[in-house]
Design a protein around this nucleic acid. Structure first.
Length: 246
DNA sequence: AACTGTTGCAACCGCTCGTCT
DNA sequence: GAGACGAGCGGTTGCAACAGT
């Protein structure tokens, strides 16, 4: 971008990635797995900084990345989540299987923000999303589990803490997606499956809150494209979730 | 056809946070 | 508690492609 940053690390390549570089990076991740990004350029034999490698992998090379236009239910969810979470793109992307934070951010900045600025351009397409009233942006509590507390999940005091936070996070999710009124989207449907799967024990709750931040921890059902729409009278799990809260 | 303005997206940078020592 | 370090996030930029004149 500027001369000062280039002089910091004169030998590091910048700019668009070549197919050859992609191949090297892919091979390296296949062999060693994700993580330890500072070692990736050396292992892969790439003349790139670790950030560049990480970004390239996360945003472009990682398997199951969805490309192309956003579906209406994805757009709707982005609106809802953005109202509640603000510009927390990684959290929003975590609820959109196959989408990266960069994708969501770019899409918001180029498509959706403009639509919000000039709502007359909506022509009804995004009306449902735009009708959502302004809410206070929610900040899910940061959750970390040290190696010391992890194995003690059965301890009662810890369990109580987890219960409180679980409740807090459930409230957030219910606020984010709303309690369904009959019509549903695959995203909501998937969200229900995801959250109901978390209620069984401490370890799952721990994973649940973690997976709120890390898209890859979503259950496999969430990665299935186009889950079937709900039939009339079919339970979507929200009532159960709602009852648990009240 | 040539020029100019706009759009979309990949990539970079600076900063913050968490962990380790 | 403080500093070092790695990882991740969000804001911003650069540029190719496209649209309009």
């Amino acid at each position: 971008m500027n001369s000062t940053t280039i002089t910091k690390s004169p030998g590091v390549r910048k700019g668009a990635w070549t197919e050859e570089e992609d191949l090297l990076l892919r091979k390296c991740i296949d062999k060693y797995g994700e993580g330890k990004w500072h070692q990736v350029p050396i292992r892969a034999g790439l003349n790139r900084c670790r950030k560049s490698c990480r970004l390239r992998w996360l945003n472009y090379l990682r398997p199951h990345i969805k490309r192309g236009d956003f579906a209406l239910d994805e757009i709707d969810l982005i609106f809802r989540l953005h109202k509640l979470l603000g510009n927390r793109w990684s959290l929003i992307a975590g609820r959109l299987p196959g989408r990266t934070a960069n994708d969501v951010k770019n899409y918001w900045n180029t498509h959706l923000q403009r639509k919000l600025i000039s709502p007359r351009r909506q022509e009804g397409k995004y009306n449902n999303a735009l009708k959502i009233t302004e809410n206070t942006i929610l900040r899910p509590r940061p959750r970390t589990f040290s190696s010391a507390t992890k194995p003690r999940c059965n301890n009662k005091s810890i369990t109580n803490t987890i219960d409180k936070e679980e409740r807090h996070n459930k409230e957030i999710v219910l606020n984010i997606c709303g309690k369904p009124t009959g019509e549903t989207t695959s995203s909501i449907d998937e969200g229900v499956q995801w959250w109901t799967s978390l209620l069984e024990n401490c370890n799952e709750i721990e994973e649940a809150v973690g997976s709120f931040d890390e898209e890859n921890k979503l259950p496999s059902s969430l990665h299935e494209k186009n889950s079937p729409p709900m039939q009339k009278g079919q339970s979507d799990g929200w009532d159960e979730l709602w009852n648990l809260l009240n």
